[in-house]
Design a protein around this nucleic acid. Structure first.
Length: 995
RNA sequence: AGGACCAUAGCUCAGUUGGUUAGAGCGCCACGUUGACAUCGUGGAGGUCGGCGGUUCAAAUCCGCCUGGUCCUACCA
């Protein structure tokens, strides 16, 4: 083995080997355990959040696999509608100077597929770098054929049950992307804006109670006034009671609009009068519905002013009786231009009463960054109410558990106030909506065009026969319909026949589905639904979903609703919710801030100049480049060193504390890389001493007799406890505890103590062969168990070392034909826990630490051999000394150590207490009297404080009376210990003072 | 406005059902190179557990209020 741990040399090699050997696929035996990966964007790249999440999932999967579960980690990618389409649009614009409209739908979609094929392997390669043991043989894509089928099926069935409907509704419209987006994709940002107060003249010579000929309304959106269809006052408002039912003459437009009474109008705010624009404001839409006001749309899809308004009733039916004319001065003006112009015109007309500056929030599209516009458009919706009920119950009754539990509240509060889900998007990349229209706009929802056409032919035939009495044509249509039966595609022949029959072809809906509609089917769609596959039976519901809190609404809630609806099962039994990975300062990582860390760079390392280029290369705001470059130089003056995948994974796990965001700590990454190195070198030591030697047992068979030392029994005992700790932590999703338990055992016990304790045995020619065998066997076996314990967290290094160590423990061929991946998870054995050995080793450690302390306090060189005396202490202590004669002098670097039976004989010494026992280092000539007296005085003072505290407690009658006996007893013991320590210090002090 | 979460050593974080001399890693200081490891070893300094009040024999831990921070939801005509 190399002297230093070099991760890059082992990582890719092992991953390829595992994959080639098919070790990621389900074993087919044991209790099923499955995780569905949250599918990353197919053309994206791995960020810290993915790396974190994948580490957790892989740890769980590897752990369960070792426990003997039939594990499936389902992998796949998402087509990510808007994100991918935008990316390709930008690419096409840059490379060819064309828009998607220049290319046309089919050619553009070809381009997207091309891009998918070109870049789609990137993130899956990165996933491999992370060591993710996903089953690549089952990799899926949300737009593959099987998924397409599942999506169609779900859509059609929901439609058939009236859970999907189409309608003209007010939706969040992105004027840049020209598509509807869901509430969740809207980001509200605080802004400073103006608040304009307008005078709206009363019609028909009516005046207010105070004699004014107008009402004052205020708005932050003056341009929408063109679409006003009413003014509302509060029904309780005495000031305007007489005006309800009267009319306003809408300025600039001239339309007569009614004054209505509606509780939406707040008497406290402004004048108490509010303009109502049902086609351009969500609240006003509701007022319009309640008051029966028409909807007048004045915007184009670019959010510019229409030359002529469009009027509808609340059902979305056109209202031809309403005069659609708008002032031509505004036609074609962008909304913000129109706003300026309208304010100017109102002012010129003397109708602008005042302008206030206010803070308000504006909705922005999270993809385009444009201001979102409520716009009246035809869209498809899922009626969620009936779906939500069972989804809420599933969490209430514990079929689904959130970890940590408090996210359940977040889920409930959202689920109990759900709006219908707008699922249509005016995009090209995605699942096209399976709905077809005839020339009259009648809709046929079906699994494919043939099915839709057949429905259409039935209706058409019926109409022709009964309404037109044309029996022959009707019969011919039916004949054709029969012919189509059983096919799923409209063939050229079929189309020709239709033409002959004079039946126009149906046209498919242009829209595609919201990406989350298809990802909502992820857990069962990936397993072959709607077919009843064996995988579906075995692996559904999945065991646990690992995801960020930020997509509980987007994804988790919708998966629960759709999965319950279509499989009757929950999608997963548990949801492990983790926080966001932030930078070391707690800032969200973002390209524009220039603080993004790439997990691959942490693994492989990166030069400073390359890192700078990455962070400042293609910034949206190039002026930030300088500041970003400086911050990067300050933080990483030498770039980033390679740390390896295992260290990165271990860092994530150690920081995976429940339910809060993670500030990624480079210091910890360094620390855990060092930990890998520690494990590496400890293994080197073990191999150096065990390979080619008799370890008591090996692949070749039984070796000679073994004799287990105190240290051997102790470390085996501690191993059992560590195994139990790690297992329990994993069961509770406490990855931080799991990693810490392993770290502490390996470093603080196995390396710091056990390896040191083994040296005197192995290096002592006088030690018996059976004792040496016992030590070698323990070294090897404990290390082998450590590696298995570490494997789910650190797959590579554990495998690499295990291949060398396992044969020594009689476990594997050592040629890679076996893998640690498939070894049994260590199970703690109660009978190996040895309390006596633990106490004895604690005693030994106590003596060694005492000597080290004396060296430090007395300024004695660490290597200088000392003569030491032990005295007082318990009845077992002289025997303990004898039992440890081989190791104690070696570890504490002693020239001699003896038991002093008569404490009175003690020479002047530096002393330390180990329990009751005193450790003496005679050193009459070495003591600096004054300094030592001062030190002892400080120590005595310290003990006095401790004693004082406890005496006060024990002097309190209610404490004695009310505290449990065990607690009281513990305090008494402590008091005795402190007093003994103090006595010793005082004795020592007096002795030195007397010199 | 409503809600959630958080506040423990210079930094990043543990701290199970109240009872610990309040811990770890990094950083810092001192010392240390013969055979696993300087990506190391040994020893050390550093905290009135955000503030105030309460419950209790006992509070970092439970309750209330306050301050500061992060986030979510809603509203802002």
């Amino acid at each position: 083995m190399d002297k230093t741990y070099q991760p890059e040399q082992i990582e890719s090699r092992w991953y390829e080997r595992w994959e080639a050997d098919g070790r990621f696929a389900p074993s087919g035996e044991g209790e099923p355990y499955s995780i569905m990966i949250p599918p990353p964007n197919v053309t994206g790249s791995l960020h810290m959040g993915h790396a974190f999440q994948d580490t957790i999932m892989d740890t769980l999967i590897r752990w369960r696999r070792m426990q003997g579960n039939n594990t499936l980690w389902q992998v796949g990618t998402d087509h990510a509608g808007i994100a991918t389409q935008m990316l390709v649009e930008r690419k096409v614009a840059a490379e060819e100077g064309k828009t998607r409209h220049d290319l046309g739908r089919d050619a553009f979609i070809d381009k997207v597929w091309e891009w998918k094929h070109e870049s789609g392997g990137h993130i899956t390669r990165q996933l491999r770098r992370m060591g993710a043991s996903v089953d690549w043989s089952r990799e899926r894509f949300t737009m593959d054929d099987g998924f397409y089928k599942a999506v169609q099926e779900v859509f059609v069935r929901l439609y058939e049950e009236d859970l999907i409907y189409r309608g003209k509704r007010l939706v969040n419209w992105d004027p840049t992307l020209h598509t509807a987006i869901s509430d969740l994709e809207v980001e509200n940002r605080d802004q400073q804006g103006s608040f304009w107060h307008f005078r709206y003249p009363l019609a028909d010579g009516v005046t207010t109670d105070t004699g004014l000929g107008y009402l004052v309304v205020a708005t932050t959106r003056p341009e929408t006034m063109l679409g006003d269809t009413g003014v509302a006052v509060n029904p309780e408002d005495p000031r305007y009671a007489s005006l309800v039912g009267k009319f306003i003459e809408l300025p600039l437009v001239g339309r007569r609009i009614p004054i209505v009474a509606d509780e939406h109008a707040d008497m406290e705010k402004g004048s108490g009068c509010v303009k109502i624009t049902p086609a351009h404001d969500f609240n006003d839409y509701e007022v319009g519905r309640r008051q029966g006001l028409p909807l007048i749309n004045v915007f184009t899809q670019d959010a510019a002013i229409l030359p002529q308004a469009e009027a509808f009733d609340i059902q979305g039916r056109p209202l031809p009786d309403i005069d659609p004319s708008l002032p031509q001065a505004y036609a074609g003006l962008d909304r913000f231009e129109a706003r300026k112009q309208i304010v100017a015109d109102m002012e010129a007309a003397g109708l602008l009463e005042q302008v206030e500056t206010v803070n308000n929030t504006l909705p922005y599209g999270d993809r385009s960054g444009d201001v979102i516009e409520p716009l009246l458009t035809d869209q498809w919706f899922v009626a969620v109410e009936r779906l939500a009920k069972p989804a809420i119950e599933a969490v209430e009754n514990g079929d689904i558990q959130f970890v940590p539990k408090n996210y359940e509240n977040m889920y409930f509060s959202w689920m109990r106030d759900l709006q219908d889900w707008c699922i249509s998007r005016q995009l090209w990349w995605g699942h096209r909506i399976p709905a077809w229209y005839d020339i009259d706009g009648n809709v046929f929802v079906a699994r494919n065009e043939v099915e839709a056409t057949r429905e259409y032919l039935v209706e058409l035939g019926h109409f022709i026969e009964h309404e037109q009495g044309d029996f022959d044509t009707a019969m011919r249509l039916r004949g054709f319909n029969q012919l189509l039966g059983g096919t799923t595609e409209m063939t050229a022949d079929a189309l020709k026949t239709m033409e002959k029959l004079g039946v126009p072809r149906l046209s498919q809906d242009e829209d595609v589905l919201d990406t989350w509609f298809s990802s909502g089917l992820w857990t069962f769609g990936t397993l072959g639904w709607p077919e009843k596959t064996p995988e579906l039976k075995t692996f559904h519901p999945s065991s646990v979903l690992v995801t960020g809190f930020d997509i509980i609404f987007f994804w988790v809630a919708r998966m629960i609703m759709l999965t319950l609806k279509f499989t009757g099962e929950v999608p997963f039994k548990q949801v492990y919710v983790h926080g966001l990975v932030r930078d070391g300062q707690g800032q969200k990582m973002s390209k524009s801030k220039g603080n993004v860390l790439d997990p691959i760079d942490l693994i492989d390392g990166i030069q400073l100049d390359e890192l700078l280029e990455k962070r400042t290369g293609s910034l949206m705001q190039p002026q930030k480049a300088k500041a970003i470059a400086k911050a990067t130089r300050d933080e990483f003056p030498e770039g980033i060193e390679p740390h390896g995948t295992d260290a990165l994974r271990f860092t994530f796990l150690s920081q995976a504390t429940t339910g809060r965001d993670i500030k990624f700590d480079m210091g910890r990454l360094d620390g855990y890389r060092n930990f890998c190195n520690k494990l590496w070198n400890a293994s080197r030591y073990v191999l150096m001493n065990a390979e080619g030697e008799d370890c008591g047992v090996s692949l070749e068979g039984q070796g000679g007799d073994v004799e287990l030392s105190l240290a051997d029994r102790w470390i085996v005992s501690r191993l059992q406890q560590t195994e139990a700790q790690v297992t329990r932590a994993l069961e509770e999703f406490r990855f931080d505890h799991a990693s810490q338990a392993l770290y502490e055992f390996v470093w603080n016990e196995y390396c710091d103590w056990y390896l040191e304790l083994s040296k005197p045995v192995l290096w002592d020619d006088n030690a018996s062969p059976s004792a040496k065998r016992g030590t070698r066997r323990t070294l090897v076996r404990v290390l082998e168990a450590i590696l298995r314990l570490a494997h789910p967290m650190m797959p590579y290094i554990s495998e690499e070392i295990w291949q060398r160590v396992a044969p020594l423990a009689g476990k594997a061929a050592g040629d890679g034909s076996e893998s640690i991946m498939n070894q049994p998870w260590p199970v703690a054995e109660q009978e190996k826990i040895d309390e006596q050995a633990t106490r004895d080793i604690e005693w030994l450690k106590g003596v060694i630490v005492a000597v080290r302390n004396i060296r430090a306090e007395m300024n004695i060189a660490p290597g200088k051999p000392l003569d030491v005396l032990l005295t007082k202490g318990g009845p077992d202590d002289p025997a303990r000394l004898e039992a440890n004669r081989r190791v104690l002098p070696k570890l504490a670097k002693l020239a001699s150590v003896d038991w002093l039976y008569d404490p009175q004989q003690a020479p002047l010494s530096a002393t330390q207490l180990v329990g009751e026992m005193e450790v003496l280092v005679p050193m009459a000539d070495l003591i600096d009297k004054d300094a030592e007296l001062a030190r002892l005085a400080r120590e005595i003072d310290k003990q006095d404080k401790l004693i004082g505290g406890i005496e006060k407690k024990l002097g309190n009658e209610s404490f004695i009376a009310k505290a449990p006996d065990a607690v009281v007893e513990k305090e008494r013991t402590k008091l005795a210990d402190f007093q003994a320590a103090r006595r010793l210090l005082v004795e020592q002090h007096d002795k030195i003072a007397a010199l």
